[in-house]
């Protein structure tokens, strides 16, 4: 009884002796860190509120059925831009997926310990955060100038170049998580390396690889800068040969948002809401697909 009393008083006195400055510094840190997180959440909230308030008004049936109107005229929709965006992103991801998955496979399976693979891995990481506008300039020089016209193909290639490093990185990371014993078991059955990779390691890492592709899709769906010099924009309906400008959501939003016409601005807001909702949904799906242990 006596002893326990002493203990409680001692602990009481100890915590009382903590210097005032230490406690203040601690409290400042806690408040500052919580505040920083709140600011981040508030900005995201504010962006979403802005998009919903401004964009929902534009969500009419004609938005999805009519092409973009001419300057200053009323009505119209963004159907051609939606379709164009789908086609450009589709071309981009169709080019990028085989290249990215194969390159990631090389880095993880064949190139272990090789100097060249280390260099490629390093440069791929740099390409991952390279300014997308430079990729636009590259594709402009590579395709638009020789062909003499803006084209959907050039836009798709530019998006593919942005998507490849994302897919390479996630593919390699996911393949590295596959235990070596699985590969050895495959090889011990007499399967050649390509069979082991295709039917053992790829299958084991498939969820992670798919996540990488979805993340790449989310990344390129909203890219604007590289499309400015490659696919540009177009106010007419989509034509199948993809030559000349191809309408797409990001460039349409850029041009319409900064235009002086209220109708165009309204369409830009509706497009912005549509594209952001799509991309956020894709990112959330990608995070749900990925397994907790796989997140490096």
């Amino acid at each position: 009884m006596d002893a326990s009393n002493t203990i409680t008083t001692t602990t009481g006195r100890r915590s009382g002796r903590v210097r005032h400055g230490r406690r203040v510094a601690d409290r400042v840190l806690r408040i500052a860190c919580t505040g920083a997180t709140l600011v981040g959440a508030l900005v995201l909230g504010s962006i979403l509120v802005m998009l919903i308030v401004q964009g929902v008004r534009g969500f009419t049936p004609t938005l999805f059925t009519n092409p973009t109107p001419g300057p200053g005229s009323e009505g119209g929709g963004i159907a051609n831009a939606i379709l164009g965006s789908l086609v450009l992103t589709g071309i981009g991801i169709l080019i990028a997926t085989p290249i990215g998955v194969m390159a990631g496979t090389y880095l993880a399976e064949y190139g272990r310990g090789s100097k060249l693979a280390a260099l490629i891995r390093f440069l791929n990481d740099i390409l991952l955060s390279a300014p997308s506008i430079l990729i636009g300039l590259f594709v402009y020089t590579l395709m638009v100038r020789p062909m003499g016209t803006y084209s959907g193909w050039a836009g798709g290639v530019a998006l593919a170049i942005i998507a490849v490093p994302v897919i390479v990185r996630t593919t390699e990371d996911m393949l590295r998580l596959v235990p070596g014993t699985l590969r050895e078991a495959g090889a011990a059955l007499g399967a050649p390396p390509s069979t082991v990779i295709m039917s053992v390691t790829w299958r084991a890492a498939s969820a992670g690889i798919v996540t990488g592709i979805i993340l790449a899709l989310a990344r390129i769906a909203g890219e604007t800068a590289p499309l400015l010099f490659t696919a540009l924009n177009n106010n007419s309906w989509f034509s199948a040969n993809l030559m000349g400008g191809v309408a797409n959501l990001p460039v349409m939003i850029y041009q319409f948002a900064l235009s002086p016409y209220p109708n165009w601005q309204g369409l830009a807001w509706a497009g912005a809401l549509l594209i952001t909702a799509t991309i956020l949904a894709l990112s959330i799906i990608a995070r749900l697909v990925i397994k907790p242990q796989a997140s490096r």
Partner: peptide, 15 residues
């Protein structure tokens, strides 16, 4: 929430 901030397209930040 914080990671979703990275997914928002750059043009939306501009607007």
């Amino acid at each position: 929430t914080i990671e979703l901030l990275a997914a928002v397209p750059s043009i939306i930040y501009g607007m």
